[in-house]
């Protein structure tokens, strides 16, 4: 059974929505993913329906030898961002939004 104890979700139109998944798996959380939380407010503010942002279970990036070092991970569409920061995530979104337009 999977339960998230705080879920902040914004859904946009399915078609050209860029999906952002912030990892809340144990490794990413311990390595600081809660400090990415302002993205849950920033992204909808900035991009409205164009980008959706959700909390995610372990993205599977941390399980290999020593890959915990590069947590927290965030997935923007099909790109994995390691040692994610608010700035890095926003830069990746920006790149994609510009490409879409």
């Amino acid at each position: 059974m999977i339960k998230l104890n705080y879920i902040i979700e914004t859904k946009g139109a399915l078609m050209e929505t860029i999906e952002v998944k912030i990892c809340s798996g144990t490794t990413c959380f311990v390595m600081g993913s809660s400090f990415l939380n302002e993205l849950y407010e920033l992204i909808p503010q900035k991009y409205g329906e164009k980008v959706s942002v959700t909390q995610s279970l372990c993205l599977g990036q941390c399980s290999k030898q020593d890959t915990h070092s590069n947590a927290p991970y965030v997935k923007v569409a099909d790109t994995i961002i390691s040692e994610a920061t608010v700035e890095k995530v926003l830069a990746e979104i920006e790149k994609r939004v510009n490409k879409n337009e």
């Binding site: 798996g25 144990t26 311990v30 372990c58």
Partner: peptide, 10 residues
């Protein structure tokens, strides 16, 4: 938890 691969959410 991380060292022992324990996923709290699961």
């Amino acid at each position: 938890f991380v060292g022992r691969k324990i996923e709290i959410l699961e």
